[in-house]
Nucleic acid binder design. Structure first.
Lengths: 194, 194
DNA sequence: CGGTTCCTTGAGGATGATCAACGAGGGTGG
DNA sequence: CCACCCTCGTTGATCATCCTCAAGGAACCG
């Protein structure tokens, strides 16, 4: 991550977005580097009949939508604020100019991109073990940053989980109640603990 | 891509691999940067019952397995030579030292990683339109680098296609013969033209 | 030619999607 | 405070589809 102050020094401006406001849409050309000051952003695709696929949620300090910027391409997905958010926005030319002058930040970018590839690779592995149970579990597991023994609450609705792993709500629900029976997760008050 | 001569100047060595030789396996710690001098490498996962998922094929001039190197992680997949190959190999310390001294190459790395993320994002979009037909078509389409009108031959067996998109051979075959009937692809001598 | 690899076809079964209906909780405005 | 609405969770029945298993055919190669 590049420090907020640095970005501002480079010429970034703070833009405020309302909840449910679109930041950019699939197919648009990438012209800015975005980094979240505060708030929450969701990247996703949707098709004609309203089915959606979530690529990720981003929050304070995280950048998003960089890959197409670096290779002069269009956004493969859309970005939407799921909360009122303040986002740092800096145009491509300015961003690249300053990045070139400060190679230490290039390294930072490399790390961000590398870890994103790693995540995507890991999650695509689930295609071979396509059972819904496996898919849900590996989603849950990915939510645990640290290898803690304590159960953590999963801050997603079943619909959101479904959109993440490409299943239907009903399937996620059925898998969850089975996992609950098997004591792998715990459901209290409809909330999932893992 | 970093020029071969540069890598050698940095201290890379040329290593020869036989067809079907493993370069690294899932779970191993990433310690080297690899770039293909000549040959062909496949990155993939496989599970207990022999089912496989192909992440990509790499050939002359391409690097592979870099992401875990940059964030000091383990390989999420295995790399295997599918032809006799000569591969440039340089250890992490040496590679990073030289990269830090030559920021112009960092930019190169960023582009490679960015385009890889873009590809992965695009292909994961297919999860929402899961019909096998759509999956196969989007695989075929990804094989066409240029927007040419000429049909190109698809240099993959049905099994290889199946491993790429996470379907079974028989399904791929049935989809292909349907696409053939619909004149979307052409099958001559069992080979697929698109 | 014999072996290997790849392609092809059919039948049957498992399973996730779909559709439909309802329940539970939370927030809001009258 | 209550009635209403909206979102989310839940359940059951049915259906379409891809996987599985099995068998055989075609092409290629030494």
């Amino acid at each position: 991550m590049i420090k907020n102050e640095i970005l501002i020094k480079w010429g970034a401006v703070i833009k405020s977005y309302k909840k449910n406001e679109i930041i950019f849409s699939e197919g648009e050309h990438a012209l800015f580097y975005f980094q979240i000051l505060e708030g929450n952003v969701r990247m996703f695709n949707s098709n004609e009949d309203g089915k959606e696929l979530t690529h990720g949620y981003f929050s304070d300090g995280q950048s998003f939508g960089e890959p197409p910027l670096f290779i002069d391409a269009d956004y493969p997905a859309s970005a939407l604020c799921i909360l009122d958010s303040k986002i740092l926005k800096i145009n491509k030319q300015l961003f690249f100019k300053n990045l070139a002058q400060n190679p230490e930040y290039q390294n930072e970018i490399i790390k961000i991109l590398a870890s994103r590839i790693l995540n995507k690779t890991k999650s695509s592995k689930d295609i071979i073990n396509q059972t819904p149970k496996h898919r849900v579990l590996s989603f849950l597991y990915s939510q645990k940053k640290k290898d803690t023994f304590e159960k953590i609450i999963i801050p997603f609705t079943r619909q959101e989980i479904a959109n993440f792993i490409g299943l239907r709500v009903e399937t996620v629900i059925r898998v969850c109640s089975q996992l609950n029976k098997e004591k792998i997760i715990e459901i209290k008050d409809h909330k999932i603990y893992f």
